[in-house]
């Protein structure tokens, strides 16, 4: 079993489209494919695959918040000074209060409290769904609850869930969120190879260079997928490709018909779209 990631930095470059098409292609070639949507704040692979709605979660994800016992708290303020997220506030000579929106659930507070006054309070922060798309192709979707500020724990727990079922598959394809922040790092953790989908625009190039730097630090071999390759300025991307010694392994020209099919959410019914991946083979 191999695990690859589809990422890219900038949003809207076609990460999900590429991940879905690649999953389809590989499953039609006889591989057992598991696509994992780790864009937990707004997962959309299921829409592109014709799943109407995510129902019956197979698992809930959880996070922890500090709960301060006012009887044990000596109001020393050590937890407040230790909190890097400024999530704890202490009114003068009173028990500190938690601002959940700022809490990253790092656990420093309940570990440093000299009086054992802080316990962990569990709360649901997301759900994991499993959909069988075809005989060879399953989709796992992580989805965080709307309004949750720290969503990487949802990604981490989605990845953990995958570990329990991945032995049934030949290929696991992780579709990450846009950006290069914690949720993306959690999605990239331990993958064998990453494909960075980008577009020939200044923003595409800028964000591509950041994600390639991240991938280099994480020691993940990577390739570039250049989407809408015939509009914009391709030089911007070849410069980044040279600078980071990362090959552009596929160029996908702009296709209005594809955009129309995408907007109807019916990629799966249009197998002819797979011609967009002609000439591309996974480096496994």
């Amino acid at each position: 079993m191999r695990t690859i990631a589809v990422t890219g930095g900038k949003g809207g470059t076609g990460k999900s489209s590429f991940a879905v098409l690649l999953s389809l292609k590989m499953s039609l070639e006889g591989k057992k494919v598991l696509l994992v949507d780790c864009d937990v704040e707004c997962p959309n692979d299921f829409i592109l695959l014709g799943v109407k709605e995510l129902t019956d979660p197979i698992k809930e994800t959880r996070t922890f918040y500090p709960k301060i016992d006012p009887d044990k708290c000596k109001k020393c303020g050590f937890c407040v000074r230790s909190c890097n997220s400024s999530a704890l506030l202490q009114p003068l000579n009173e028990v500190p209060v938690l601002n959940k929106n700022l809490c990253s659930s790092c656990g420093v507070c309940w570990n440093v409290c000299p009086y054992g006054a802080i316990s962990k309070e569990e709360e649901m922060n997301g759900e994991i769904f499993l959909n069988n798309i075809s005989k060879n192709f399953s989709l796992v979707t992580g989805r965080s609850i709307v309004g949750i500020r720290e969503t990487s724990p949802v990604v981490e727990q989605t990845r953990k869930y995958i570990d329990t079922i991945s032995s049934d598959f030949d290929l696991v394809i992780i579709d990450t969120a846009a950006g290069t922040h914690c949720t993306v790092m959690s999605a990239l953790d331990g993958v064998d190879r990453a494909y960075s989908v980008t577009e020939p625009t200044p923003l595409g190039a800028h964000d591509l260079s950041i994600i390639l730097r991240v991938l280099r630090i994480l020691k993940i071999p990577s390739e570039i997928i250049l989407n809408r390759s015939d509009i914009g300025n391709k030089d911007l991307i070849t410069q980044i490709s040279d600078k980071y010694s990362t090959d552009i392994s596929l160029e996908i020209p702009f296709d209005r018909k594809f955009a129309e099919i995408y907007s109807r959410g019916s990629l799966i019914e249009n197998v002819e779209l797979l011609k967009m991946l002609d000439g591309f083979s996974l480096n496994l």
């Binding site: 407040v80 997220s85 400024s86 999530a87 506030l89 202490q90 009114p91 003068l92 601002n99 700022l102």
Partner: peptide, 21 residues
């Protein structure tokens, strides 16, 4: 000290004001 903080600086400075009495 929080001027360049990533986030939650309002809370830190509020705490500073509280601690300064």
């Amino acid at each position: 000290g929080s001027a360049q903080g990533a986030r939650g600086v309002g809370v830190s400075v509020g705490q500073l004001a509280i601690n300064s009495g």
